Amino acid sequence: KLKCQHCNHLFATKPELLFYKGKMFLFCGKNCSDEYKKKN
């Protein structure tokens, strides 16, 4: 199981990947990825 970088939920589906500031982040979906980008 993977943990979403934004909402901290565990998920087993294909993660949404975001490469940001030289790091890779995993998200449970596009919505969390977009929210994370807005906040950072």
Results as ranks from 00 to 15, higher is better:
Lys1Ser: 05
Lys1Val: 02
Lys1Met: 03
Lys1Cys: 04
Lys1Glu: 06
Lys1Asp: 12
Leu2Ser: 14
Leu2Lys: 14
Leu2Tyr: 03
Leu2Gly: 15
Leu2Thr: 15
Leu2Cys: 07
Leu2Phe: 13
Leu2Ala: 15
Lys3His: 04
Lys3Glu: 13
Lys3Trp: 03
Lys3Cys: 04
Lys3Ala: 05
Lys3Tyr: 05
Lys3Asn: 12
Lys3Arg: 08
Lys3Met: 03
Cys4Trp: 00
Cys4Ser: 01
Gln5Pro: 03
Gln5Glu: 02
Gln5Lys: 03
Gln5His: 15
Gln5Tyr: 09
Gln5Arg: 03
Gln5Ala: 12
Gln5Trp: 03
His6Gln: 07
His6Gly: 10
His6Pro: 00
Cys7Lys: 01
Cys7His: 01
Cys7Arg: 00
Cys7Ser: 00
Cys7Ala: 00
Cys7Glu: 01
Cys7Leu: 00
Asn8Thr: 09
Asn8Ser: 14
Asn8Val: 07
Asn8Lys: 13
Asn8Arg: 12
Asn8Ala: 13
Asn8Cys: 12
His9Glu: 11
His9Gly: 13
His9Thr: 14
His9Met: 14
Leu10Gln: 14
Leu10Val: 13
Leu10Tyr: 11
Phe11Ala: 04
Phe11Gln: 03
Phe11Thr: 13
Phe11Val: 14
Phe11Tyr: 01
Phe11Ile: 03
Phe11Met: 05
Ala12Val: 03
Ala12Cys: 07
Ala12Gly: 11
Ala12Pro: 05
Ala12Phe: 04
Ala12Lys: 13
Ala12Arg: 10
Ala12Met: 06
Thr13Pro: 05
Thr13Cys: 03
Thr13Lys: 09
Thr13Asp: 05
Lys14Ala: 04
Lys14Cys: 03
Lys14Glu: 10
Lys14Asn: 07
Lys14Asp: 08
Lys14Pro: 04
Lys14Ser: 08
Pro15Glu: 08
Pro15Lys: 10
Pro15Tyr: 01
Pro15Ile: 02
Pro15Met: 02
Glu16Leu: 05
Glu16Lys: 13
Glu16Cys: 07
Glu16Gly: 02
Glu16Tyr: 03
Leu17Val: 10
Leu17Phe: 04
Leu17Glu: 15
Leu17Gln: 15
Leu17Ala: 13
Leu18Met: 07
Leu18Ile: 04
Phe19Ala: 14
Phe19Gly: 09
Phe19Gln: 15
Tyr20Thr: 13
Tyr20Gly: 08
Tyr20Asn: 09
Tyr20Phe: 14
Tyr20Cys: 12
Tyr20Arg: 06
Tyr20Met: 09
Tyr20Val: 12
Tyr20Ile: 14
Tyr20Trp: 11
Tyr20Lys: 06
Lys21Trp: 05
Lys21Asp: 13
Lys21Ile: 03
Lys21Gly: 13
Lys21His: 12
Lys21Asn: 11
Gly22Ile: 02
Gly22Met: 06
Gly22Phe: 03
Gly22Pro: 02
Gly22Cys: 09
Lys23Asp: 07
Lys23Gln: 07
Lys23Leu: 09
Lys23Met: 10
Lys23Thr: 10
Lys23Pro: 02
Met24Glu: 15
Met24Lys: 15
Met24Leu: 06
Phe25Ala: 14
Leu26Lys: 15
Leu26Ser: 14
Leu26Met: 12
Leu26Pro: 11
Leu26Arg: 15
Leu26Glu: 15
Leu26Gln: 15
Phe27Gln: 01
Phe27Val: 04
Phe27Ile: 02
Phe27Ser: 01
Phe27Gly: 01
Phe27Trp: 02
Phe27Lys: 01
Phe27Asn: 01
Cys28Met: 01
Cys28Leu: 00
Cys28Asp: 02
Cys28Lys: 01
Cys28Phe: 00
Cys28Val: 00
Cys28Gly: 00
Gly29Ser: 06
Gly29Trp: 01
Gly29Pro: 01
Lys30Asn: 10
Lys30Cys: 03
Lys30Trp: 05
Lys30Gln: 07
Lys30Tyr: 11
Lys30Phe: 07
Lys30Asp: 05
Asn31Asp: 07
Asn31Cys: 07
Asn31Ile: 04
Asn31Ser: 10
Asn31Arg: 13
Asn31Glu: 09
Asn31Val: 08
Cys32Val: 00
Cys32Ala: 00
Cys32Ser: 00
Cys32Leu: 00
Cys32Asp: 01
Ser33Phe: 02
Ser33Thr: 06
Ser33Leu: 07
Ser33Ala: 11
Ser33Pro: 02
Ser33Cys: 08
Ser33Asp: 03
Asp34Lys: 15
Asp34Trp: 04
Asp34Arg: 08
Asp34Tyr: 08
Asp34Glu: 11
Asp34Pro: 01
Glu35Leu: 07
Glu35Trp: 06
Glu35Tyr: 06
Glu35Arg: 12
Glu35Thr: 06
Glu35Met: 09
Glu35Cys: 02
Glu35Asp: 10
Tyr36Pro: 01
Tyr36Asn: 04
Lys37Val: 11
Lys37Asp: 09
Lys37Ser: 08
Lys37Arg: 10
Lys37Gly: 11
Lys37Asn: 15
Lys37Pro: 06
Lys37Cys: 08
Lys38Thr: 12
Lys38Val: 12
Lys38Ala: 14
Lys38Met: 09
Lys39Tyr: 14
Lys39Val: 12
Lys39Met: 07
Lys39Pro: 09
Lys39Ala: 14
Lys39Trp: 07
Lys39Gly: 13
Asn40Gly: 07
Asn40Tyr: 03
Asn40Thr: 12
Asn40Asp: 13
Asn40Pro: 04
